[in-house]
Design a protein around this nucleic acid. Structure first.
Lengths: 217, 217, 217, 217
DNA sequence: AATGAATGAGCATTCATTCAT
DNA sequence: GATGAATGAATGCTCATTCAT
């Protein structure tokens, strides 16, 4: 490797670093703004201000508002899918569903904005992620339905409808992110403490796992 | 009463009728548009078109976009509160919570747009209904917490955290409205049938009531 | 007719007047700006300023820049077609072509902006009026070719190629509009006087009519 | 001369070559883009893409869009002036004007883009080449007027106004470039063939030379 | 009461140009 | 010398709201 080449590689690397860092700043700001104002109510100016970049620079990284939004929604979907793996390879519902609830609750806690963007996207008819819903999500759901059916057949849980159970899992865990403001207001205006988050997790797990007959109350 | 007065009263009445009818048309259209596009994405023109009125006429009834939005959100809150009454005066959780779930599921089915507007409002930090949350909703919640605590004390159900139980009730029932599009997509693209709605209700009730030890699995 | 109806008709009429007047103002300004700056270089703001209207009002009349441009180009085409009628029903080339040259020269004098917009449009590949070229203009051209052929057959003029003759007529007459600025510069910086316009017409007519053997030099 | 110096000279030469080649590529692309979109509609990005160079590199050679445009217009003016020489030193109008028409028609055929850029520049009021018009072009024109007057005095042609004759020559020959798209459309959508170009030249020459009494019809 | 016309304030996006290496 | 990155200054267009009748 020549000196020139080495220098060149360094320059390239530095550029990549800057790009990555700026993209991170933008995506973080965008997630927040899209969550708080919706797609239509969000403005590129606001996102740029929050990221500390000129508007035109933001548009240099993400050519259109929609491109940026797509990336934000895509990121959440990724995180969401990773959590889904918690359910696989578990011997039974207590471990599988328990771990899934834990993972989803943790996402609600760590990525409340992302969850809201996802909720908003679905509520508006999923204009951007309809294909995800019809492919990845549908496949994943069917896979999980099979697993749950097996647990039922094995007598590890009561014969509940697997789909409605999944909806309940999604609804309950995401509620802590999507309706976080309402929960906070009912919690004397304060965010849930670590202890309260732990209680929430336990409550959800106990009620659902007991409810499906996997835990003996 | 003179002829003129009588005629005048009649005209007055006709005017009131027209006003009421137009307001109904507008609110109906607005609920749909706000639900589908969010506050920021909704346009007065679109609402007016859907209501079949000129834009300027709509603004004659509701002077600003925010005024209209307030009324829409207020309407949903009303409906939501009525359903809450189902929980009162019940001898125990099976009847009380069961009836509440039934009522909330029915609202999700009959007023999916309203539920979405409510969700959207809360997700955006409740700029318009913050006072409702801090007064009416907080009071109602505390009342219900008391009722649930009594049932627990009476041994009618397991000692679950009443607040987390309420969140689960809200989350689960509203999910069928707010995430209706996702559910429909996972249901082969078709809306839930009457039978599927019934199954949903039963699933939710059985799991939760069993989960809190009110029903013996 | 009732008073109400009459009043209503009057109001309607007044509105129509305002609309017509504003459209006229806008189209006049637009023709000038499009001619002087081209489609890409023209700005709605400039046109609006020149018409003495707020930009948003202009866009109320013509929803897009392209719509406005289309109308401007369409107007010129109309005028151009009317002049073409001068050539019909003439007993021979001296009267027919002579009248056509007179008409086209007069258009160059009265509507120099329009001619430039047309020229610019054609130079840019006729993105907007390609259909006109392929239908109306093609048909008109073929009709005139037939007429010229007949005059040739009747011995009223020399056997020149009718198409190239038409191109020469268009080129020569429109040049006085399209290259008016160059002509003015070569005319000591002053616009052509009425006398000079008359000389131009006569020169063009004499050279062409003599050139095709219709006039005996 | 040291080794270093010799090496340096070679490197210098190579640089010059690259510079010349890149400038050529840019000017060629710019001529096309300016012709097709006008100054306002042209974008540096498009020119750079067409030249196969990064935008920033193009601006390294031509610091501003206007600089580049100036060079393009200047080039055309050069070509245009060269053709003008065809008219000098001819014994009479048949040779002089005939050769001029041939030369200008050939330019229209070989450099249609350049002709359009020139036309566009003049139509927009010659913001860039006004000084050329007032010096070089005015002088050249007066020289040619003198020549034509002499031919008239010598009885070699009819007493036509020399200026209007020149305008006709310019108009007619440049029309084949500037309105090439229209001509192509009227030619069944196909570019003029070599034969048709020859016919065009002959038609123009015969009509004009006959028209001014230089050729006996 | 009702509504066509009008408009100020913004918005997403474009683009020539500058910066930094 | 060459070029990715960055940006100020528009630009076309939208939209809630106001005006005038």
């Amino acid at each position: 490797m020549t000196e020139t080449a080495r220098f060149s590689r360094t320059k390239q690397a530095r550029r990549t670093d800057i790009r990555r860092e700026n993209e991170r700043l933008i995506l973080e700001a965008a997630e927040k703004v899209f969550a708080e104002a919706g797609f239509g109510g969000a403005t590129i100016q606001l996102i740029a201000d929050m990221a500390g970049l000129p508007k035109a620079n933001l548009l240099y990284y993400f050519p259109t508002k929609e491109d940026l939004y797509r990336r934000v929604v895509g990121n959440i979907f990724e995180i969401w899918l990773q959590a889904a793996e918690a359910m696989d390879n578990a011997p039974g519902p207590v471990e599988g569903i328990g771990a899934y609830i834990d993972a989803k609750m943790e996402i609600s806690r760590r990525h409340p904005h992302g969850s809201k963007v996802w909720a908003s996207e679905v509520m508006h008819g999923a204009p951007v992620i309809q294909d995800y819903l019809e492919t990845t999500l549908r496949d994943w759901t069917e896979g999980r339905v099979t697993v749950i059916r097996r647990w039922i057949d094995e007598g590890q849980m009561a014969p509940v409808d697997p789909r409605h159970l999944l909806y309940m899992l999604w609804a309950t865990t995401q509620h802590y992110a999507d309706f976080g403001h309402q929960i906070e207001t009912l919690n004397a205006g304060k965010p849930l403490s670590a202890r309260q988050w732990a209680e929430a997790k336990e409550s959800v797990k106990r009620i659902i796992l007991t409810g499906i007959g996997a835990l003996k109350g």
